[in-house]
Amino acid sequence: MIDVHCHILPNVDDGAQTIEESIAMGRAAVEQGITSIIATPHHKNNQYENTKPQILAAVAELNQAFQAEGIQLEILPGQEIRIFGEILEDYQRQEILSLANSNYMLIELPTGQVPRYTEKLLYDLQMEGLVPIIAHPERNQELVQRPDLLYQFVKKGALTQVTAASVCGAFGKKIKHFSHQLIEANLTHFIASDAHNLAGRTFMMRKAFKEIQAKYGMDTVYLFQENAELLVEGSRVYKEMPERIKKKKIFGIF
Rank of each mutant, 00 (worst) to 15 (best):
H5G: 09
C6I: 00
H7W: 01
I8T: 02
N11E: 11
Q17E: 15
I19N: 09
I19L: 11
S22M: 09
I23K: 09
M25E: 06
M25W: 00
R27I: 05
A29W: 03
G33D: 08
I37V: 04
I37Y: 00
I37H: 01
P41V: 00
H42Q: 04
H43Y: 02
N45I: 00
N45L: 02
Q47M: 13
K52F: 06
K52H: 07
A57Q: 12
A58K: 02
V59T: 06
Q64N: 13
A65L: 08
I71F: 01
L73I: 08
I75L: 05
G78H: 01
G78T: 03
G78C: 10
G85E: 12
I87S: 08
L88G: 15
Q94T: 14
Q94E: 15
N101H: 12
M105Q: 07
M105L: 15
I107V: 08
I107F: 03
P110W: 00
T118W: 04
E119Q: 08
D124W: 01
L125S: 05
M127R: 10
A135P: 11
E138C: 04
N140Q: 02
N140K: 00
E142F: 09
E142S: 14
V144A: 14
L149S: 10
L150I: 09
Y151F: 11
F153I: 11
F153W: 08
V154M: 02
V154N: 01
V154A: 03
K155Q: 15
V162T: 09
T163Q: 11
A164T: 06
F171Y: 15
K173C: 06
K174M: 04
I175M: 02
F178Y: 04
F178Q: 03
H180A: 13
Q181V: 00
L182T: 07
I183C: 11
A185C: 13
N186D: 13
L187K: 01
T188L: 08
H189Y: 02
H189E: 12
F190D: 07
H196Y: 05
H196D: 11
R201K: 04
T202Y: 07
T202S: 12
K207Y: 06
K210V: 05
E211Q: 12
A214F: 08
A214L: 13
K215V: 11
G217H: 04
G217E: 11
Y222P: 05
F224K: 09
Q225C: 13
E233I: 10
S235V: 06
V237P: 14
K239I: 09
R244H: 14
K246D: 15
I250Y: 03
G252W: 04
I253Y: 08
